[in-house]
Amino acid sequence: MIPRIGTGVDVHAFAAPESGREMWLAGLLWPEEVGLEGHSDADVVCHAICDALLSAAKLGDLGSNFGTSRPEWAGASGEALLVETIKRVQAAGFQIGNVSVQLIGNRPKVGPRREEATANLERIVGAPVSFSATTTDGLGFTGKNEGLAAIANALLIGS
């Protein structure tokens, strides 16, 4: 069994408040927040995990698997994309060892829902997940409240 590590990054801009977009992060609805723009639900946490898993398995990236050229994935939930990614990774002969993902942005405040988000991600992924969040101290687009980013690392075990 050969361990393989992948890294994934995802970034989305906040939608206009009048857009009615819902905020989905870590597969959970955050009803007090305005959502993010995207082809799907723009769940940057789930998307970054997908990219990390696909990278480790040498299966491309989120765009090549579920991008805007694939209309059947328009409006898909981050959870649905993550479930399909896991199926593809397992079909390629890999098991997930663990995942670490960090949300980057000023809002929403993750602390009050960190345990819930972690448990939800572990339920979806079927392996240990570490979920954290940070800010950029007012720097860049996340610091100016223009959007959110997430970065993830995944460990796969397989041939």
Results as ranks from 00 to 15, higher is better:
Pro31Gly: 02
Asp51Cys: 11
Val44Tyr: 01
Ala48Asn: 02
Leu36Met: 12
Leu54Ala: 07
Leu53Thr: 02
Ser64Tyr: 00
Glu32Gly: 13
Thr68Glu: 12
Asp51Ile: 00
Val34Arg: 09
Phe66Ser: 07
His39Arg: 02
Gly67Val: 06
Trp24Lys: 11
Ala52Cys: 10
Leu36Ile: 07
His47Lys: 13
Gly67Lys: 09
Pro31Ile: 11
Gly63Val: 11
Trp24Glu: 08
Ala48Lys: 04
Leu25Met: 12
His39Thr: 08
Asp61Leu: 00
Lys58Asp: 12
Leu62His: 05
Asp51Arg: 13
Asp43Val: 00
Leu28Ile: 08
Gly27Thr: 07
Ala26Phe: 01
Leu29Asp: 05
Ser55Ala: 13
Val44Trp: 04
Trp24Cys: 09
Ser55Asn: 14
Phe66Arg: 10
Gly27His: 04
Glu22Val: 12
Gly63Asn: 14
Ala52Trp: 03
Cys46Lys: 06
Leu53Met: 06
Leu59Tyr: 10
Ser64Asn: 11
Leu28Tyr: 11
Asn65Ile: 04
Val45Met: 09
Gly63His: 11
Glu37Asp: 14
Leu53Lys: 04
Leu36Glu: 01
Ser40Trp: 13
Leu25Val: 11
Glu37Gly: 10
Asp41Asn: 14
Ala48Ile: 03
Ala26Pro: 07
Leu54Thr: 05
Ala48Thr: 01
Asp51Gly: 15
Gly38Trp: 02
Leu54Asn: 01
Leu54Lys: 06
Asn65Arg: 15
Ser40Tyr: 00
Asp43Met: 05
Ile49Lys: 02
Asp43Ala: 06
Ala26Gly: 14
Ser69Thr: 12
Val34Tyr: 03
Trp30Val: 12
Asp51Val: 01
Gly67Ser: 10
Met23Thr: 03
Leu53His: 06
Asp61Ser: 14
Ala56His: 02
Ala52His: 03
Val34Cys: 12
Arg70Asp: 11
Glu37Trp: 08
Glu32His: 12
Leu28Asn: 08
Glu32Asp: 13
Gly60Phe: 06
Asp61Phe: 00
Pro31Leu: 08
Gly63Asp: 12
Gly35Val: 05
Cys46Ser: 14
Val45Phe: 04
Asp43Ile: 02
Leu59Asn: 09
Leu59Ala: 09
Leu59Trp: 07
Trp24Arg: 14
Cys50Ser: 15
Gly27Gln: 07
Glu33Tyr: 01
Leu28Thr: 05
Ser55Gln: 10
Cys50His: 06
Asp41Ala: 14
Ala26Ile: 09
Asp41His: 13
Trp24Phe: 14
Ser40Asn: 13
Gly27Tyr: 02
Phe66Tyr: 15
Gly35Asp: 04
Glu37Asn: 14
Gly67Met: 07
Asp41Ser: 15
His39Cys: 07
Ala48Ser: 15
Leu25Gly: 03
Ser55Arg: 06
His47Pro: 01
Val44Phe: 02
Leu36Thr: 01
Glu22Arg: 15
Gly63Met: 08
Gly67Phe: 08
Met23Phe: 11
Leu53Val: 06
Thr68Trp: 00
Ser64Phe: 00
Leu28Asp: 04
Ala57Leu: 03
Ala42Val: 10
Lys58Ile: 00
Ala56Cys: 04
Asp43Thr: 05
Ala56Gly: 14
